[in-house]
């Protein structure tokens, strides 16, 4: 369920990307730092989680799947 909502959030930033298959959002520079911070803000509000500086690594934001894993991990904490 998280992943669907995450894809909705990502679609608001870059609707042209296929988030089911794309796994290089940061590495391929599809998302710039403005986009990432916008997404972080939405995730924090939507899932009531605390994303901090330690989580700001490319691996956590390269795909919808990776973001969903990060959200899940932070929800458990």
């Amino acid at each position: 369920m998280n992943k669907d909502r995450i894809i909705e959030i990502l679609m608001e930033v870059h609707p042209e990307v296929d988030y089911e298959t794309e796994n290089g959002l940061i590495d391929k520079r599809i998302f710039d730092s403005f986009d990432v911070v916008t997404v972080v803000g939405e995730l924090m509000d939507e899932f009531d989680i605390e994303i901090t500086a330690e989580h700001m690594i490319p691996e956590n934001f390269n795909s919808a799947e990776a973001i969903a894993e990060l959200v899940e991990q932070l929800e458990d904490e």
């Binding site: 730092s33 403005f34 986009d35 911070v37 916008t38 972080v40 803000g41 924090m44 509000d45 994303i51 901090t52 500086a53 700001m56």
Partner: peptide, 30 residues
């Protein structure tokens, strides 16, 4: 990063975005 993903900073950016300045709002937290 600690400043950029700080709740107040994110909130400030979001408020500016919602006030009809999406480009500026996106840039503030950076």
């Amino acid at each position: 990063y600690p400043l950029s993903v700080n709740r107040s900073m994110i909130k400030l950016g979001k408020t500016v975005r919602e006030k009809g300045m999406p480009t500026l709002g996106k840039r503030i937290p950076i």
